[in-house]
């Protein structure tokens, strides 16, 4: 990608369209964070392409003053894959939700991850279908009552991180709509990663699943319930900064420094670049009340990107071939004169 010195401010990325999400919707914060991230990233404004499917989150491109494509339900991943493969010089951002990306678009989601196309996916997870007014989604917790599950859902939900890692994902990060600064910095890391970067953003729908992430965002306890991971740093959290994640014979556990002989050096140090996804998976799957929820870049592993390999193969073949035009192709092989 062509890198340029950043000369933009967030407002350069605001379009002239009125933002129509509900007041209090988490999407406003995410929009704000994306505009801030774009202003910081080293790309030209015309090189951004923001591509969405269908759903509340998918209105996103209309609010961005970039090239944008509001596509059809579930297909943003496939269309974004086509855009990036056609022109690897673009900075491609796919905006999707838990319904758009994981239900109707589930197949494209796992395959763009498998191919490791160098694009960034923002998956707004509010565990509900908002635009169609409150039906359960593939991430809705078992037993939740919604418009289409009046007696509670009987479906097992996806864990987004596990799905990403299962699909051979090279990058998985999680952020929270209440923390604009963290979203911004996470998106910058996503952009820097070569390959499909999945950023799950826990997002609140004020109308149909209000406070769905309430346990995590609760102002009183959030320091004890949110673990911010950084590559190379200890997994320490808590109001008193005295809790941490340790490895035991039963898997991960929460320990308090100074209790039961636990020292700071016993706390795990986060290695996002580790190829073996074992610990990343355990971190991604941590849930309350026994564990804090992990945020930040959980996994960022270096692998070839599909679009790069495609471009390289074309360049390699073109360097070798004697065919320069369709005239050469048409006259190749066996021909005869009449």
């Amino acid at each position: 990608m062509t890198e340029v010195a950043n000369k933009y401010v967030a407002k350069d990325f605001k379009s002239d369209q009125e933002v129509r999400w509900c007041a209090g919707c988490g999407d406003h914060a995410i929009l704000n964070a994306v505009q801030r991230a774009f202003a910081e990233l080293p790309h030209k404004k015309e090189d951004y392409a923001v591509i969405s499917g269908i759903g509340c989150s998918s209105r996103f491109p209309y609010y961005m003053n970039t090239y944008g494509f509001h596509t059809i339900h579930g297909r943003a991943g496939a269309i974004a894959s086509g855009v990036k493969t056609a022109n690897p010089n673009l900075s491609v951002w796919q905006i999707t939700g838990d319904g758009d990306g994981l239900a109707i678009g589930g197949n494209h989601f796992i395959h763009e991850i498998r191919r490791n196309i160098n694009l960034n996916v923002l998956l707004f997870n509010n565990e509900i279908y908002g635009l169609t007014k409150g039906q359960y989604s593939p991430t809705t917790k078992m037993g939740m009552k919604t418009k289409t599950s009046p007696f509670g859902t009987v479906e097992r939900p996806f864990k987004v991180g596990q799905l990403v890692i299962g699909a051979e994902g090279t990058f998985f990060a999680r952020s929270l709509d209440t923390n604009i600064k963290h979203i911004t910095s996470t998106l910058i890391q996503a952009d820097q990663h070569k390959g499909t970067s999945i950023v799950e953003i826990l997002q609140n729908c004020v109308i149909f699943s209000d406070k769905i992430h309430g346990w995590i965002t609760d102002k009183e306890h959030k320091e004890d319930r949110q673990l911010y991971l950084e590559h190379g740093k200890s997994m320490i959290f808590g109001k008193e900064k005295n809790k941490g994640i340790i490895m035991t014979s039963h898997g991960l556990a929460v320990a308090t420094i100074g209790e039961d002989g636990i020292k700071e050096s016993d706390i795990l140090v986060h290695d996002a670049k580790k190829e073996d996804p074992f610990i990343h998976l355990m971190l991604a799957n941590m849930v309350g009340p026994d564990f804090p929820v992990a945020f930040g870049v959980i996994r960022a592993v270096e692998e070839d990107a599909y679009d790069e390999n495609v471009a390289k193969q074309v360049a390699d073949v073109q360097a070798e071939t004697k065919f320069r035009s369709m005239d050469d192709i048409l006259a190749s092989g066996s021909t005869w004169e009449v």
Binding site: R75, A78, I79, S81, G82, V83, K84, T85, H108, H111
Partner: peptide, 17 residues
């Protein structure tokens, strides 16, 4: 592509690009 739908959708993306 992974399916027929992705076949046309990647093409639409490439056309846009």
């Amino acid at each position: 592509a992974e399916d027929e739908i992705a076949g046309i959708c990647t093409a639409i993306g490439a056309s846009f690009a």
